[in-house]
Every structure is written in C-alpha cells, then in structure tokens.
Amino acid sequence: MTASVVPPKRGRLRAPKFLLAGPSIIWYVLFFVAPIAFIVYYSFGTKDSSKLVPVDMSSPGFHNYSEAFSSTFFTTFKATLRVAVTATLLTVVIGFPVAYFLAFKVQERWRAILLALVIVPSFTSFLIRTVAWRIPLAPNGTLSKWLQDWGVIGGPISLLETRTAVQIAIVYNYLGFMILPLYVALDRIEPVLREASKDLGAGRVSTFMRVTLPLAGPGIAAGVLLTFIPMCGDYVTATVLGGAKGNMIGALIDSEFKGAQNWPLGSAIAVLMILAVLVMLAIGAIVVVGGQWLLRRMRRVDLSDGAPA
C-alpha cells in the first residue's frame, strides 16, 4: 500500500460531484420545478374559463399581481399570520418546558416512554383529531353540559367556529413537531457545560439564560421552521373548526383556483404568499441573529468585569 496507489482511488471516489443527488434533481425538476414554473407562468395570464386550462396567455402582464395586492389579500394574510405567529409562540412556550423536562429532569427509563407518548398522537390522522376537537367544543356537547351543571360557566361553550378554536387545534396539531426538535437540541447539550456554569457560580436562571437557551437555539429554529411554514399554508384545520373566522390565505388560493376558476389570480396570490413567508423568515432570522449579537456583547461585558461573587 504505497502512497502512489491512493490518488486514482480517491479520484474515482470523488469523480461525479453530484451524481448521488442526481435522482433527486431529476425528480424535483420533473415534479416540482416544471409544474410550478407553469403555475408561475400562468400568473401573468388572464382567466379564460372556456379553455380546459382556464388561462389565456395572449397578453401577459402583471395585472394579477396588482389585483392580488388587494385588501382581501391583506386582510386574509394578516389573519393567517396572526394565527400562525401566535400558534408558533404558544407551541414554543408550551413545548419548551416539556422538552426541558424530558432532556434534563426525567429518569432514563421514563424518558423513552414519555417521548413515545409525545410522538404517538401524531400517528393518528391529524384530520380526525381536528374533527374530534368539535366534540368538546360543541355548545350542545357533553362537556358544555357538565360545565354548566357544575356552574363553571354561565352559558354553553361558544368556541366552535371561532378563531380561538382554530388556535387551539393548530397548537395541538403542531405541538409534537415543536417538542421533538427542542428535545433533541437540549439533549445534545453536554451536561458538563451546565455543570461548569454552576461551578463558576452562575445561578439556575443565569445558567438557563446564558448556557441552555442559546445552545437550544438551533432546536428552536428547527421547530419554528417545522411548525410556522406549514401553519401558514394550513387551511384545513381552520375550515374544520373556524367557520367564517377560519379564513386563511391557503383557503383564498384554493377558492381562486377551484371556486372562481381564476388560475392566474390564484397563482399570483400563491407567489406573493411564498414571498411573504420568506420575508417573515428573514425577519425572524434577523431578530435571532441580532439577539445573539446583543447577548454576546452583554456577555463580553460581564467577563471583562470579572467573575461575579
């Protein structure tokens, strides 16, 4: 085995740079890029319902985009964003203590069971679970009657077809997708780091804020990506529980494509929505990066002051 043998072998191993990704590239180009390109192309056309594909491309222009920038779009988008942002924050707030408990505070043999219990609900159809929320929330339902009999509430529960119901169900549906990345991120934190922080005299709060939370950052980011993006596009949950208050941007796109047969406008709204979500993520990233920078600055000051008592 001399050194001269190595280079050709290495060359063979490295030769096709993206060969392994080849199947994916073909698959995505064929079934994602090409069809989506058509839809984006349609967004410059005009509606012509006499055709099988109801789009007339004879006079392309940006008129759909100016139409899409209407108050309808903004009202709906604002409502969607409110639901998605609130739900994302709620899943973090609800999910973090659970992930923290699982990662640091529970005995090994319980951990696997609890983790499984967190995952198991997401193996039932999310749609039937959403429908199931109608049962406890119904004004004439058993829960409503019990609560009234016990005098907990004055009148029947009136949560069905409200935004609160949508909020509950969306938080419910995506909670697992937040807890798991959080847990995995927390679990990767070497206990030595937290011990060191404590040995250096940092209190529990201080350790949490300066060691645990920053190290859990990637997990929170992953969780937010995994929940926020689908929430923005999810309109099924809202349709099932929200009634008129469950008007989401996804439903608007759906109704343009299917209800109004207006593919060009639907496409334009969809393109705008993608851009808006990207902008939101960018804003989120900037906030996080900015926060980290601030944190780092503060920490630097602390250290230069010397160790606290």
């Binding site: 309808t72 009202t75 709906t76 409502a79 469950g246 008007n247 109704s255 209800g259 109004a260 207006n262």
Partner: peptide
C-alpha cells in the same frame, strides 16, 4: 358576472374572517 361574484364572495369571506 361570474368573476365579479367570485370577487365579492372572497371579499365577504375576508371581511367575515377578519
């Protein structure tokens, strides 16, 4: 008037959902 009706309807939905 089909397109106009669809547009009105979307506006109603947006208003009701807002």
């Amino acid at each position: 008037a089909q397109d106009r009706i669809a547009d009105i309807y979307n506006k109603i939905k947006a208003k009701a959902g807002g």
